[in-house]
């Protein structure tokens, strides 16, 4: 009898799993009957577009209009661009114009279009120990380095990280030492580290607004300078260079992002919740 018990147990276990498989099959079949199997495309994008919730609004719109399943991979801009150059993604939505230009010039991406912008801001502890303010980010960074005020960097080759490193270079400072902390994580987590460690951090405004409810030890200290513009571009991966790319849907996605209807949605996104737009439309 003991033998049987073990068998029954194993059998029940397998049945459970098999029933799990079966269920999804019927669901798929039902979906198939309704309409043609949707095609699938991979969108490599930055964490800020996902963490702010913008993609949760835009992607379903696009999927519905075009019968496409979009696989959104939210990573740092550096990784997203790398996925583009390797042909692992079909479309890219990123925000590091200088690095993007290299990818476009190398012929890995085509159909390069400006979509929207928001701005970078410098956020710091409420008591502002380095006493930085105003709109001059280069001067602020110099002050931070002189005071060796705790600075939290993304350190993940993201668009924001690239921007931050660009400012250090422009200010002719090599940030290093105990005061310079590199998290290697996304914007949300980096902001949380800054809040805990009472450090200064460069962030995009969208993520800041979406997360400020958890960040009550931080405040905006520098904003509004013309150097602080954060521009997002969309592009499709060149199908001539990478043969497995889904260029049909990628092209549709680029067109969708710069469509005036989509631009209205972008402009209005977050207005109700935060009292201001998280992103501003900005096509060419």
């Amino acid at each position: 009898m003991r033998k049987n018990r073990l068998f029954i147990a194993l059998f029940a276990f397998m049945l459970l799993v098999l029933s799990a498989c079966g269920n999804s099959d019927t669901k798929d079949a039902a979906a198939k009957q309704k309409k043609a199997e949707p095609t699938s495309m991979i969108l490599a994008t930055t964490t800020s577009t996902q963490d702010s919730g913008l993609l949760d609004v835009l992607i379903p719109m696009f999927e519905k209009e075009n019968n496409v399943k979009v696989k959104t991979i939210a990573v740092g801009t550096g990784q997203a661009l790398e996925m583009g150059t390797k042909g692992e993604a079909d479309a890219l939505l990123v925000h590091a114009p200088a690095a993007e230009k290299a990818v476009v010039d190398a012929g890995d991406a085509i159909n390069y279009k400006r979509v929207m912008y928001n701005d970078f801001i410098l956020v710091g502890p409420k008591d502002n120990p380095a006493a930085v303010s105003g709109d001059d980010i280069n001067a602020a960074f110099k002050k931070l380095a002189d005071a060796k005020s705790s600075f939290i960097s993304r350190g993940d080759d993201s668009g924001t990280n690239k921007k931050e490193l660009g400012i250090w270079t422009a200010a002719n400072i090599k940030p290093a030492g105990d005061w310079y902390v590199s998290t290697g994580q996304g914007m949300g987590q980096t902001l949380q580290v800054a809040a805990e460690k009472k450090g200064y951090v460069l962030t995009d405004r969208a993520t800041w607004l979406a997360q400020s409810k958890n960040l009550d030890t931080l405040q905006i200290v520098v904003e509004g300078g013309k150097d602080l513009m954060n521009i997002y571009h969309v592009m499709q991966v060149n199908p001539e260079k990478h043969d497995k790319v889904n260029s049909k849907d990628a092209q549709k996605f680029v067109e969708f992002m710069i469509d005036s209807k989509t631009q209205e949605v972008i402009e209005n996104f977050g207005k109700k919740e935060y009292g201001q737009s998280l992103f501003t439309k900005y096509t060419e």
Binding site: T47, D51, T72, G186, G188, Q192
Partner: peptide
């Protein structure tokens, strides 16, 4: 998996994502 909504999002990956969104 890529934590794709409605496709490969499982409990552990959505926890990571919600933390990075600040939705503790």
């Amino acid at each position: 998996g890529g934590n794709i909504q409605g496709d490969t999002r499982i409990l552990t990956t959505s926890i990571v994502m919600e933390v990075s969104k600040g939705n503790f």
